[in-house]
Design a protein around this nucleic acid. Structure first.
Lengths: 253, 253
DNA sequence: ACATGAATATTGGAT
DNA sequence: ATCCAATTTTCATGT
């Protein structure tokens, strides 16, 4: 798994190391070093000398990690061009991409460790509780929103965006459903209001608007009520969470 | 910088290592191993056995990296609780947090490397080109949007959200400006339309709406025009990008 | 603690 | 290539 490791390499050795290991198939290269990091592109930034973990993956993505936070200090998703060179007796890494045109430049002042890893692919990954999954569940069991609901359409496109679920209630009244997998905010209410208004304009019919989510913020609920819209509590993860959060067991079978 | 390292530790040695180094001040711990990763919380996921880089930072944040992409396969921002134990002769790492209630559980099947790093703090970090900066620039030089503009308010709160810039044009007509630091999308147009409509209702005056951004998508521009709103081209990074993207120089002075 | 909104958001999917 | 919408978004900020 650990293919190669160099302790306190000098500039020349680091360049050689990177040249050798970058671009490999399932390779991940890390450099732990004191360095300066600069970025220009969608924004621009400079980080003065500090200790960072620089991670370069096989797809050309780069991230520079600090001692805190999930988010890197600097990064670059899937770059087109990765280059190493020696400038002023220091190893310099340049990662560029077109579209958008941007670049990250790292000057290695003092390298503690460089390592090349080969990560064998995992056999499988499953994610549960996405909005798409919620949509499928509610389409096949619309009574979870309200009894007597008949789904007419899913992801129905309009000129102001796609309607998650379009239906008629038990009395035949048109119903627009906006789904959120997490706690719904005012933004979701505005989205729903927009769809309802548009459908009213197009059809001339009475239209109900329902925000379906596991929860809603208090301010959002207030706006919802003021606009004559409704909230329906639906959970994204039916029972998995409660079952598996018990300490000890953790099978998602 | 590299405080401690263990090559192919067994379960007991890994647990001891983690117990010793976790929770340190500016410490970052990495484990490169074949493992299984499970997550339950806002969603739920399972990753079958595969090779990953597990990174634990001093603030309790966790990330599990794959061979590709900037985003980790699994992660946890600032957890409240980090635990290691031996189960079925394997080292198991559990990272939990309240609010939201969630946890990541990692079973180490075969560990290639464990290392503890001490990252000294960097001296400085500067980011240029944020929306806040753009707002300040345009407030002090509103003619960049349009000649004769007088700014009345910044971040003016309404019941449908905060208006980035509120102004009067040279003819005294009210003007609502929505700022975007990147290419503006339809969502930004809807936001602007909402503010304009609300200000019209409140004031009863004629109100212009301007979307100020470095660029706008074609569909967004169409919607904008249809709604009688306007686009103003303003750049978030006045000249830094073009000046510094020249190969060779890279000073942001 | 809760809610809001920006972000170099990233990423996958549709057009 | 462009555009849109979800995301375990994360994160800082204000209340």
């Amino acid at each position: 798994m650990v293919e190669d490791q160099r302790i306190t390499p000098d500039a020349a050795e680091l360049v050689e190391f990177l040249d050798e290991h970058l671009g490999g198939g399932r390779c991940l290269v890390q450099v732990i070093a004191e360095c300066e990091v600069m970025y220009v592109g969608r924004a621009a930034s400079v980080a003065d000398a500090g200790d960072f973990v620089v991670m370069l993956k096989a797809d050309g993505s780069l991230q520079v990690h600090d001692y805190r936070g999930v988010k890197p200090v600097n990064w670059q998703p899937r770059a087109d061009h990765v280059r190493v060179a020696i400038e002023d007796e220091m190893a310099v890494l340049t990662v560029e991409r077109r579209s958008p045109e941007e670049m990250v430049r790292i000057v290695f002042l003092e390298t503690a460790l460089a390592q090349a890893l080969h990560l064998r692919e995992g056999s499988g990954f499953v994610l549960m509780g996405s909005e798409a999954e919620m949509q499928r569940a509610l389409t096949s069991a619309p009574e979870l929103i309200e009894p007597g609901l008949r789904v007419l359409d899913v992801e129905l496109p309009t000129d102001v965006g796609g309607i998650d679920l379009f239906a008629r209630d038990r009395e035949g009244v048109l119903l627009v459903v906006e789904l959120k997998r997490g706690k719904a905010t005012q933004e979701a209410v505005h989205q729903l209001a927009r769809y309802v208004e548009r459908v009213r304009e197009i059809t001339g019919e009475r239209v109900r608007g329902v925000l379906a989510a596991p929860a809603i913020t208090k301010p959002a609920l207030a706006v919802l009520a003021r606009r004559g819209l409704e909230f329906a509590e639906v959970t994204a993860l039916p029972d998995v969470a409660s079952a598996t959060l018990q300490p000890g067991l953790f099978s998602l079978a």
